[in-house]
Computed example of a mutant assay.
Amino acid sequence: MSQTKKQITVIGAGVIGLTTAVHLQEKDEYQVTIVAEIWQSDHPTAHYTSHWAGGHHRTADGEDKRQRAMDERTYQVFRLMSEPGHAAEKCFIRTPQYEHYFEELGHPPGVENMPDFRYMEKSELLPGAVVGISFTAISFDAPLYLDYLQKCFLDAGGKLVHGSVQHIKQVVEGGSAVFEGRLPEPPVAVVVCAGLGARTLGGVEDKTVTPVRGQTVILHAPWVRFGATRRKIEDEMISYVIPRPGGNIVVGGTMSADDWCVCVLDVLWAMTRNRYPAPREKTKTAILAKALALWPEIAPPHARKDRVPTIADLYPIIVEEGVGLRPQRDDGIRIEAELVEANGVKAPVIFHYGHGSSGFESSWGSTYMAVDLMEEVMGTN
């Protein structure tokens, strides 16, 4: 049956590649193959950024109308997925979100459309905050959700292939077959969801894509049933707490632009764990100390009973440290098409990357746009 379907190859298996592939494969007219160096089911690495996402969805964030449209559409999908009885329900949790702003500008436009939105009372604000808002956010467990997407893709008949693509022409000419030791099988279209790899991938080489280094700490703290963020424009570190289903919380985090590196001690740490770049110990300490000062509730109840908790109380409940390089693009998310020729074989290539820190939040919205563009170029829409 797959021979009668149109062959599509997706490059990249992060949240954008998986979401795109799921949407295409479930259309039932396509046979989709993902070619990627790293999958979600592989050993965690900083080179697979999606694994390390927080994350939560706070839709309609900012002035960019296209971005807001993507976010809003994704929010509707996440809201449906988080409903009781949905197959993805266990990946999500709905909790109160509290955001404290330290500038007169306050919160970005559009956030007031979130469920249960209200302005916080002055007595609820962190010291120095100018304004605060509260609403109900949808939080998710990134690794669990990625597992769900990968399973959906495979259950629908999709195919995963390990492969290191040097140039998009390799895929245009031969599809995934060239990475499987088979005769070339040109696809009818290629979708590039390479994330940070778009910077070096031949045929793309988009130097406007740069890494924004994000480091977080995951704690097992099932008593924390809220999300909170301290937002201050000049701070490189944005303090936040994001709950996950299952009792873990993500404590963060950093937003370090064009930061690829680590110190020597961190390199030694990374070598023993097959990871580079690695979390920085000093940054971890700073993240935990700042979050604990803002929200002492993250410490175990026994540590707060008769005294002020310290950072030492958090170390026994550390589950994991994470660092990922978000693929930020100067002009925002790229959704464009180009006809590419390789040794007489032509195919439309759809570029779908550059999501920065909004990969999950805009994933479904940008996927719908990218697939619509692909079908328009192919003349099937």
Results as ranks from 00 to 15, higher is better:
Ala293Ile: 08
Ala293Val: 11
Ala293Gly: 15
Leu294Glu: 15
Leu294Ala: 15
Leu294Arg: 12
Pro296Gln: 12
Glu297Ser: 15
Glu297Asn: 13
Glu297Lys: 15
Glu297Arg: 13
Ile298Glu: 08
Pro300Tyr: 02
Pro300Lys: 01
Pro301Arg: 09
Pro301Gln: 10
Pro301Leu: 10
Ala303Asn: 10
Ala303Cys: 14
Ala303Ser: 15
Ala303Val: 05
Arg304Thr: 04
Arg304Asp: 05
Lys305Gln: 14
Asp306Arg: 11
Asp306Met: 09
Arg307Lys: 14
Arg307Asn: 09
Val308Phe: 07
Val308Ala: 12
Val308Ile: 13
Pro309Cys: 06
Thr310Phe: 05
Thr310Tyr: 03
Ile311Leu: 05
Ile311Val: 13
Ile311Arg: 01
Ile311Trp: 01
Ile311Pro: 00
Ala312Thr: 11
Asp313Met: 07
Asp313Ala: 06
Asp313Ser: 03
Asp313Val: 05
Leu314Asp: 00
Leu314Cys: 01
Leu314Ala: 01
Leu314Gly: 00
Tyr315Ser: 06
Tyr315Asp: 12
Tyr315Pro: 01
Tyr315Trp: 14
Glu320Phe: 09
Glu321Ala: 07
Gly322Leu: 08
Gly322Trp: 01
Gly322Asn: 07
Val323Gly: 02
Val323Glu: 01
Val323Phe: 04
Leu325Ser: 02
Arg326Ala: 04
Pro327Trp: 02
Gln328Val: 13
Gln328Cys: 11
Gln328Leu: 14
Arg329Trp: 05
Asp330Val: 14
Asp330Arg: 15
Asp331Met: 12
Asp331Leu: 12
Gly332His: 07
Ile333Lys: 06
Ile333Leu: 14
Ile333Phe: 09
Ile333Ala: 09
Ile333Ser: 03
Arg334Ala: 04
Arg334Tyr: 08
Ile335Ala: 01
Ile335Leu: 11
Ile335Lys: 02
Glu336Tyr: 12
Ala337Gln: 03
Glu338Thr: 10
Val340Phe: 08
